[in-house]
């Protein structure tokens, strides 16, 4: 990355990088959950219900991915990243909750 003046300001604990990777890991977890959801939706259901469930799970996954990408861009924009907005934290958590509700509907 950049050196000199910007490099001197760089946090030696690499906090923004660690946070960025934490978002990546979480996105990966969301991907695993979404893939399991799609597998479950395609298994032993009518085609229409399966497609609707797949679309909902895909949309939730895309929503989470959008939040993660937005946050990663904010983190890497400057040397002193702003705190996470509560809106985005809530959105990420609500994606997980909605996935769980989707799962409950598929399981029962």
């Amino acid at each position: 990355m950049s050196t000199g003046a910007a490099g001197a300001e760089r946090d030696p604990g690499l906090q923004p990088e660690r946070t960025r990777l934490a978002w990546r890991r979480t996105t990966l977890s969301a991907t695993v959950a979404a893939v399991l959801a799609v597998k479950s939706a395609l298994h032993g259901r009518g085609p229409a219900a399966g497609i609707v469930a797949c679309a909902v799970c895909g949309a939730l996954w895309l929503g989470f991915l959008g939040v993660a990408q937005h946050r990663i861009r904010t983190l890497t924009a400057g040397p002193r990243p702003p705190a996470l907005a509560p809106r985005h934290a809530t959105a990420a958590a609500l994606c997980a909750v909605a996935l769980a509700v989707c799962a409950a509907v598929l399981v029962v």
Binding site: R25, T26, S29, A33, A96, L99, A100, V107
Partner: peptide, 12 residues
């Protein structure tokens, strides 16, 4: 949140 997603994946 990862813990929550792992629990949800476990449910599936």
């Amino acid at each position: 949140l990862r813990t929550a997603l792992a629990l949800i994946g476990g449910g599936f």
